[in-house]
């Protein structure tokens, strides 16, 4: 095990270069992100500050009334240590106004609504400051589908979407993200005491070791079992990857013409950039 170790200096150079290049080539200089107090958005803030300069990074902490107050404190700690722009925008008012109409709504509906509420705020501020929204979903959660479509999964560009959670930890250490943020248990912070690993039913470390072999190395089920992974765990993770694939694709379009967007009308997004 332990195949996930990365050369953090090189990774940092590539990700910082990516943010700088992809923001500047569209004629902008600023980046906007939601800073939750968790490690993923903290790392993206560190990358963005190095790429664009702290004065060009706009971080927004968007708590709901049930959010852990420690999250806001950690977000502030990250923003202060970097010297980036920071604002707290509470979403309780808008979310509650909506759910007053649907008091029976489940936790899942409420969580998704909150994620999408935050997304609309980020995109509004992206227009206000003329900056691109930076994504903060890592490869582990993208593959597992542990995120809200058009919510926290929405962004203009994502520097950490190809690195696993274990690598997020590693790079965060190397870039100097505060230890309080690195060491706490990952949480979507929808209600007190919630943790990702509890909800997923396995640890990120275990998921990463499996996903790396399953996705990156394309090992077969037999090979994974021979490597020591339990069949049930393999199947569970595989089901999550397959079941959430729709979240990683653009909406499918009914084809009727000879040139359909993304099917036979194919251009890079950096077309002309």
């Amino acid at each position: 095990m332990g195949a996930l170790t990365v050369n953090t200096a090189l990774l940092r150079q590539i990700l910082v270069g990516f943010v700088r290049d992809e923001v500047c080539k569209v004629g902008l200089r600023k980046g906007v992100l939601g800073l939750s107090g968790g490690i993923d958005s903290a790392l993206v803030a560190y990358i963005a500050a190095e790429a664009l300069g702290p004065e060009n990074v706009y971080a927004y902490c968007m708590p709901y009334r049930t959010s852990n107050p420690e999250s806001e404190a950690h977000a502030r700690l990250v923003a202060d240590s970097l010297g980036i722009n920071f604002k707290v925008i509470e979403i309780t008012g808008m979310v509650d106004a909506y759910f007053d109409l649907y008091p029976e709504a489940s936790n899942m509906r409420r969580g998704n609504k909150m994620a999408r509420e935050r997304m609309t705020i980020l995109y509004d501020h992206s227009a206000e400051v003329a900056g691109l929204v930076l994504g903060t979903s890592n490869k582990t959660e993208l593959l597992l589908g542990y995120g809200t479509l058009h919510g926290d999964m929405a962004s203009a560009l994502n520097p950490i979407g190809d690195i696993y959670k274990s690598q997020v930890w590693e790079l965060s250490e190397a870039m100097g993200v505060p230890h309080e943020v690195i060491e706490k248990k990952p949480s979507a912070d929808l209600w007190a005491g919630q943790t990702d690993e509890q909800e997923l039913g396995f640890t990120y470390r275990d998921a990463d070791e499996l996903l790396y072999r399953m996705v990156d190395q394309r090992m077969s089920r037999e090979e994974l079992i021979a490597a020591g992974f339990e069949a049930q765990f393999i199947d569970n993770v595989h089901r999550k990857v397959q079941g959430s694939h729709f979240k990683r694709r653009l909406p499918i379009i009914a084809k009727v013409s000879n040139r359909t967007i993304d099917r036979d009308f194919r251009y890079a997004r950096d077309w002309g950039k």
């Binding site: 170790t5 990365v6 050369n7 090189l10 990774l11 590539i14």
Partner: peptide
């Protein structure tokens, strides 16, 4: 294209 960031020194 650069790919294959691992524990080794280079890409």
């Amino acid at each position: 294209p650069g790919r294959g960031v691992s524990g080794t020194e280079g890409l």
